[in-house]
Write a protein that binds this DNA or RNA. Structure first.
Lengths: 199, 199
DNA sequence: CGCAAAATTGACTGTTATCAAACTTAGTGG
DNA sequence: CCACTAAGTTTGATAACAGTCAATTTTGCG
């Protein structure tokens, strides 16, 4: 893998585990204390409200890390979206805090804050544009890529419905801003225009 | 102050500074690296979109800490809402990461995730109920308290408009769930019912 | 008391959700 | 290879929640 590991310097040992599409990585109440780096595939972290409404908190792509918790137990679900390989890195039990782990936690917090900006004050078109640009940026600024997640996953990440996501995709496509090479493969035809839509 | 300091154990020196209502604590682009504990008063952290829409990321009350950043510079505004006293604690420059700071960062991340749940998938009534219950819990589970922030601040925190906030307050009041002792002082008359509304 | 800012209330609008149906796609077995 | 199926996606018609615009009331402060 060409991505430089942000976990370089961790003294902990780690093992690699593969998960099938849809497989659960952890669930609310599970013991926390291990965190994960995505080697390949993609992960979805989410939680359900009592009546079944779902909010996806984050997607994690190859090279990214997740699974830190403030408490001893997890409060979200983590699932593999596609077949996914994870390095499990156990947090030192002695309470020692490495600067790397702190940096990862702070980056996670910044990411969460950007997410709040997106769903708190942006329209459906702005959210979808922002999501697509973010996906491209996180994969090195490529102009086309496969979305590992379904429209429902995207809707639950952006606080929209599946129908609205579909309609906005159609709108961006007919405006010539994106092209759907296939249902899951998006090409950003006018990246700068898309960026300007993110408000 | 009766609140146990979560920063106990930090070797750093600190100073205390007072800010008037509305005063800026930091702004986007300002050098980061210092974090703050609220001694008295309340703080609002927010960001503006290009067209003036505002999202409040967090409120911080007495005893709470904020100001950590992943980058060298801040990406949000922090302002005192009322007259506020802050202990400024400089992050050790040698890159050392104390377990306490990591814990604070992880708690901040959890708080951000709860916020995403709230604005991503909940209705106006659920958001306001959740907000009021959270405010009570953070002040030790008291049944009445003063809101330091305006309706506009609350609206921008919850991703609503000031009119919607006002209408939901009226609705909760006429349902007997809350009482407005004054415009800024809320009494939670039926805390458990309010909790059940948070979904 | 008088003024400006904040909050409330009302009428109406609009974006997004909901409900429903049709269409695609990928996978399975004849 | 081609139906057949089921899941996922798209599209359409309608509804609802929250937003916008506007006017009024309340509050806090000089």
């Amino acid at each position: 893998m060409s991505i430089v590991s942000p976990t370089a310097g961790f003294p902990s040992t780690y093992s690699v585990v593969t998960f099938n599409a849809g497989a659960e990585i952890y669930a609310p109440g599970d013991k926390a204390g291990t965190f994960y780096q995505v080697e390949f595939g993609a992960v979805r972290v989410h939680r359900l409200l009592s009546d079944g409404r779902r909010q996806v908190i984050a997607f994690h792509l190859a090279g990214e890390t997740f699974g830190f918790e403030a408490d001893r137990t997890h409060s979200f679900f983590a699932e593999a979206i596609t077949q996914t390989g994870l390095r499990a890195i156990s947090r030192p039990a002695n309470g020692e805090a490495s600067p790397e782990l702190l940096t990862l936690a702070l980056r996670g917090m910044l990411r969460a804050h950007e997410h709040i900006m997106m769903i708190g004050r942006q329209t459906a078109v702005e959210r979808i544009s922002g999501f697509l640009v973010d996906m491209a940026d996180r994969q090195g600024g490529i102009e086309y890529f496969d979305l590992p997640m379904s429209r429902l996953d995207i809707a639950d990440y952006l606080g929209l419905t599946i129908e609205t996501v579909s309609r906005v995709f159609a709108k961006l496509r007919s405006a010539g801003l994106i092209k759907l090479r296939s249902i899951r493969c998006v090409e950003l035809k006018k990246l700068e225009t898309l960026r300007s839509l993110c408000a």
